[in-house]
Design a protein around this nucleic acid. Structure first.
Lengths: 350, 350
DNA sequence: TGGGTCATCCGAACCGTTCTGGGTGAGAGC
DNA sequence: GCTCTCACCCAGAACGGTTCGGATGACCCA
């Protein structure tokens, strides 16, 4: 305790390594960056010196010279508190994290939680402090994306933007297909009066899931059996009440998120309806709790981790092969986007 | 579409701003950094030039010169997948994010999800690429923390480390107090055979909650009524089965996490026991779903967002007032740590 | 042996900041 | 009028890397 090593031990620099190895800075740099044009003997000497000094390159200096930061930003543009607590979002982050680590990039997380955050984040991103941006904005605000594209900063969005702009790429889950899966399951179970609690129409997940549902139902689709809510449990409960009041004869229900489904199940139970005997329910998301509900919730499973990974892949690809000077490429449309498949997890609620 | 602005517009530098404003680089730098020693006239000119050119300082260059990166890392050292999907963790991140944004720092997120991540992250942190580290490691692995402390990198931990080392600061929730609250509630409700499903003993949350429970119960504590599980729903269900098999006369249950509590509730229900009439249950965490259970779960609410914020505060404080050269300071013990209060959310399960 | 090729290495310039030491001018004091 | 002070500003040296042009030596061929 009384003994104390020198506290502010200077971190070794390229210069120091070079001196110890008896070569020039340039050679050390070449070794560090794996250039082939260096004599094996010297390479070994340099390696030895690096190990001895515990040399770690200074990223700031490197970034200054190369103009690349080896950092990418994951931006969550969503004032709604709920999103961040969503395990779905957490899984995207996990996927992003893994894939970036493998590619040798580091992850800067920026959350726009309050109005005043927006300008700061925008300034930051526009300042070329990161090499690329992953953007998750559930709602329809496209300003940030537009600015980034305009500034020529590589961008990939998570989830289909509600207003698709021509040059932004995205990775989405197959919301349309998943909703159709759910609807068809209810039909196959013999349900005739199938309703839905849809999400808000300013989110693509909301519109796409409703669209898939409607499409799969075809002529059987009944607008009177549609309610909207904001993807929360209480919102789901309220929507279920409205739906039930209007159509007590409901016998099947597709709910566009598990959270809402759980809210709805509570309401149905209180109304004395049995699940799935009286009303069969299918959710969306497959959150952890879906399996622990009573009864366990049949739902649509997405792949948020894969989504995160794929977003990184697309971004890196774009960064390494930046958009050719355009305007001779006719379109960079849908074929550059990715829609990940979803599947049905059949439990007991339907 | 055929029109196209010049793509690689150079970003303006200090030099450019200086030229436009008719001053030197140094003066611009002073303006940017808010130094008072600059003539109001010139300051205005510089501001004008900055706005005109949309100048944004190059952080890499600044970091190179100042030795400070204005970035701090949030490290989640937890191979267990579950942690990342935990809304609790997400809330910590939110708190951290807000507080860092206010302080003008940016957030680098590093997750140690796979064994091979560990070395990379360690290298990165040790390379002084961030000004400080926030560490969340639920389990007992202290190696990383030790290395960081040894290297003199400012560190604050989230949650009490199982083996408290003298120099690491932490911000924790009052697990002991919360468990005591729960136990006392059950006692006050007239329960006599109160059991607990505790967390694993290699996490401080596990040991502290058990400790608080045991302490509050005093002589009424019965070791036979203790089961352990790993904080998951299925783990909780299994533990409940074991407990019920051994002591079917159970009439009160404190479960050390809501996830486990939900698992346990399913088991109790299947066993034909009514909640709370036959068995009263108190959980811990107050996750979103606790309110949506059947019956709604009485539980202990923590303040993860506050925890995140507080971690940042402690870290910044330590960074700005680094540890005095020690060894004359007798101890930097508990008074530098923070334990946040928790409270009971009484619903219907107890 | 002389000249050319090639691999390898070095010195130096450069990236965009901050910061230091010194210089400039205006105003005050004598 | 001449210093002295002081506020302000500028030029230039860092910071720790990358990269470029050129130097060096080994090697080969005629």
């Amino acid at each position: 305790m009384t003994q104390q090593e020198v506290p502010a031990r200077q971190r070794p620099t390229l210069e120091a390594v070079a001196a110890l190895a008896g070569v020039s800075r340039a050679t050390v740099s070449r070794v560090v960056n794996g250039s082939p044009a260096v004599d094996p003997t010297k390479r070994a000497a340099v390696q030895q010196a690096i190990n001895e000094l515990h040399y770690v390159p200074n990223l700031a200096a490197r970034a200054l010279m190369t103009g690349r930061t080896y950092a990418i930003a994951l931006v969550a543009d969503e004032p709604d508190v709920r999103v961040f607590s969503d395990p779905y979002f957490a899984d995207i982050v996990r996927g992003v994290s893994v894939e970036l680590a493998d590619a040798g990039y580091r992850l800067t997380l920026a959350m726009i939680q309050r109005p005043e955050d927006r300008d700061h984040v925008e300034q930051y991103l526009l300042g070329h402090h990161v090499d690329g941006v992953l953007l998750i904005s559930a709602h329809s605000d496209q300003r940030l994306a537009d600015r980034l594209l305009e500034a020529g900063i590589p961008l990939v969005e998570g989830g289909r933007p509600v207003l698709a702009t021509p040059r932004s790429r995205f990775v989405d889950n197959d919301n349309v297909g998943g909703a159709a899966l759910a609807a068809r399951l209810l039909v196959a179970a013999g349900r005739r009066r199938i309703g839905t609690i849809a999400g808000p129409l300013d989110m693509s997940a909301g519109v796409d899931r409703l669209h898939g549902f409607r499409q799969a139902l075809g002529d059987a689709f009944d607008p009177e059996l549609v309610e909207h809510a904001n993807f929360t449990t209480t919102g789901g409960a309220e929507a279920a009440e409205r739906l039930l009041r209007r159509r007590p004869d409901l016998d099947g229900l597709f709910v566009a998120s598990d959270l809402m489904a759980i809210g709805a199940m509570g309401v149905l139970r209180k109304a004395g309806l049995r699940i799935p005997q009286d009303v069969a329910i299918v959710g969306f998301d497959d959150i952890v709790l879906a399996a622990a509900c009573d009864p366990p919730l049949t739902t649509v499973r997405q792949q948020p981790i894969q989504q995160g990974r794929m977003m990184v892949r697309l971004l890196l690809e774009r960064m390494h092969h930046p958009l050719p000077d355009a305007d001779d490429l006719p379109d960079v449309g849908d074929e550059e986007n990715v829609v990940l498949p979803v599947d049905l997890v059949i439990r007991e609620s339907a």
